[in-house]
Design a protein around this nucleic acid. Structure first.
Length: 582
RNA sequence: GCGUCCGUAGCUCAGUUGGAUAGAGUGCAGGUUUCCGAAACCUGAGGUCAUGGGUUCAAUUCCCAUCGGACGUACCA
């Protein structure tokens, strides 16, 4: 990365100055150099602010900067001092190197070794199999799958996992709800208890169970009749629950793959009960004296590990809470040997973190192994008004949204903002968005670049001053760019700046990926791609690629294709397509 | 009450971990095409960085208080 290179240059300059006794920072000092790109690029391509050092060396920032500058050893670059800033303007050799590297490394160009092969279990979405996804789930699906790509590019071994909450009360409720739908289509006069404001909360009244009921009836006609005569027995609820949760899981799975979100594993909560892992965990905690009984319930002493109050692990009615199996789940993850557990949770779960960390600690693991990314929720705006989301009422589902807006636009929109801010998803705006949608801007730049390559192969024969490139010819140019003199790219004074800007921007993708992996964030990639697109458009407007100067045309085609490579990689990371035509 | 996140241009948001004259997009006003895609580019107007203190050479950034918003504070999942 160029930024690291600049940092290294300055650092060695500082060390040299100290060695020569030209700078003295006293006993304790800290060098925390930060490479930035000046907003006004005539100042330089990169800058480092060394003002902080004046605290340690009793000298003015300008003096220090000048001393360091004199001890800096860098080729083909202008170094100048403004205030406490050391500014660098890089020469053509750096630009040529960037292009050569892009062509040499291709899809590996964005890789870095931050993770050093560490294994990560990345858990996200993890919904109840009780209904279709709502828009909020889409945010985590897009985020998790994009973060997985970023981490993989940074040499983490990533295992993507979806935890299916297929145990517990809500599954019973799902079965009961399916019963109502089934009886309705079988002609019974029955409906949800809409009048009882408490009881109605135990039902899923959305339309989506009607289809499931119809399918059940056609596939299990005899069973359905049996249920009709026997009524809502425990055994019948189990049959219906089981059927419904499978149907809901299939529905969710289909939506996820439409949304380009693929998991390595779907982990069932039920399986933790079947394998006795839940019971074993409780017994282990008992053996450690971390469980006590009060008011007929079992409590886990999470306060011993910093939680504000102890938590119930087995209710009065003898059933486990959600926490109990979740403890078993996290211990299971750790036993599988992952170095890092990353959970993507909605902000409404934040109070839950200390409990899980308490459990991890109680089992002798390091609680810091668990990183929770708390994402703020999505506000759905319909007709200018905020709509409440819920599985139990009429809603816009994620797959409705994808159908309306498209996968690319939905993903980009979801990823554009930091997880820390609540996302307003204006459905009307997103639906109507064509030119307004930022994703098209980046995609258009890509399509435009591709059309230049097409045009190079399809020049009008009447135009004798221009010579066509065959497809093979283009490929051989791109496969062996070292045969061509890239210096020609920089000969023209007027076009130098836009070209330099574009090439430096291409290189920037490396630090963007690195920083995103480090911060566990995604939105900077979107921001970067928009900026990259803009700089390409600027280049396009100031530099004609296909000209009667064949040598110049070739090197500019090389640059255009480098842009295509990087834009492709970037869009790929966030799961958005890079169209050749729009 | 307590906890988490947020408050920056009319609107939607950045702000590189405390530094250069606070930046983009959109909207508004104007301009650019005999030639590779005008879904683009260029120029301009638009700001008390919620408010008040504090820390220091320097605060949109860190600390405290206040105001405003979202979410949470279950023997639900």
């Amino acid at each position: 990365m160029l930024k690291n290179f600049i940092k290294y240059i300055v650092k060695t300059g500082i060390e040299e100055s100290i060695k020569k006794n030209e700078l003295n920072f006293g006993e304790e000092y800290e060098i925390n150099l930060n490479v930035e790109t000046p907003k006004k690029h005539d100042l330089g391509d990169f800058a480092i602010n060394i003002s902080k050092l004046s605290k340690y060396a009793r000298k003015s920032p300008v003096e220090i900067a000048n001393v360091i500058k004199n001890n800096i050893n860098i080729e083909d670059a202008d170094v100048n001092i403004v205030g406490g800033f050391i500014n660098f303007k890089l020469g053509k050799s750096y630009l040529k190197n960037i292009l050569n590297e892009i062509y040499k490394e291709k899809e590996c160009y964005i890789k870095n070794n931050q993770g050093n092969g560490k294994s990560v279990l990345l858990e996200y979405v993890s919904a109840n199999p009780t209904g279709p996804f709502h828009i909020g789930h889409g945010r985590w699906a897009a985020f998790g799958s994009a973060l997985a790509n970023i981490l993989k590019a940074s040499n983490y071994k990533v295992h993507q996992e979806f935890y299916i909450n297929d145990a517990g009360n809500q599954i019973n409720n799902l079965g009961k709800s399916l019963y109502v739908r089934l009886m309705q289509i079988m002609g019974e006069n029955i409906d949800f208890p809409y009048d009882d404001e408490f009881e109605i909360k135990n039902y899923y009244t959305g339309d989506y169970l009607i289809n499931v009921a119809e399918k059940f009836l056609s596939q299990n006609f005899n069973t359905a009749n049996k249920i009709k005569t026997e009524g809502l027995t425990k055994a019948n609820i189990d049959i219906l629950s089981d059927y419904a949760k499978k149907a809901m899981f299939d529905l969710q799975h289909k939506t996820l793959s439409n949304f380009k979100t693929y998991f390595d594993e779907y982990f069932s909560e039920c399986s933790l009960y079947k394998s006795n892992e839940v019971e074993n965990c409780v017994n282990y905690l008992k053996s450690k004296n971390l469980i006590y009984e009060e008011n007929g319930a079992l409590w886990f002493k999470t306060t011993q590990f910093g939680d504000e109050q102890d938590r119930v692990i087995k209710k009065q009615d003898g059933l486990n809470t959600y926490l109990t199996s979740d403890i078993a789940y996290h211990i299971n993850k750790l036993k599988r040997g992952y170095d890092i557990l990353i959970n993507v949770w909605g902000a409404d779960h934040h109070g839950y973190i200390p409990r899980i960390k308490a459990a991890i600690e109680a089992f002798g693991y390091n609680p810091n192994a668990l990183e929770v990314i708390l994402g703020q929720l999505v506000n759905l705006i319909i007709d200018g008004e905020q709509a409440r989301m819920g599985k139990r009422s009429k809603m816009i589902t994620l797959s409705d949204l994808i159908d309306e807006v498209g996968v690319d636009a939905t993903r980009f929109w979801m990823l554009m903002r930091s997880c820390d801010t609540t996302l307003d998803f204006d459905v009307n705006l997103a639906k109507s968005a064509n030119d307004d949608n930022p994703v098209f801007y980046a995609q258009y730049a890509h399509a435009r670049a591709c059309s230049i390559l097409r045009h190079a192969q399809d020049i009008d024969d009447n135009n004798k001053s221009l010579q066509k490139f065959s497809k093979d010819e283009l490929n051989s140019i791109f496969n062996d760019i070292e045969h061509y003199n890239l210096d020609i790219l920089f000969d023209n004074e007027a076009s130098f700046e836009p070209i330099k800007k574009l090439i430096l921007k291409l290189e920037e993708i490396k630090s963007v990926i690195y920083n995103c992996a480090n911060n566990r964030s995604v939105y900077q990639v979107c921001k970067y791609l928009l900026e990259l697109g803009q700089i390409f458009h600027q280049f396009y407007n100031t530099n004609r690629v296909i000209t009667d100067n064949r040598e110049l045309t070739i090197v500019r085609l090389i640059l255009v294709n480098a842009f295509i490579i990087i834009m492709n990689l970037g869009l790929n990371v966030i799961g958005v397509t890079a169209p050749q035509k729009m």
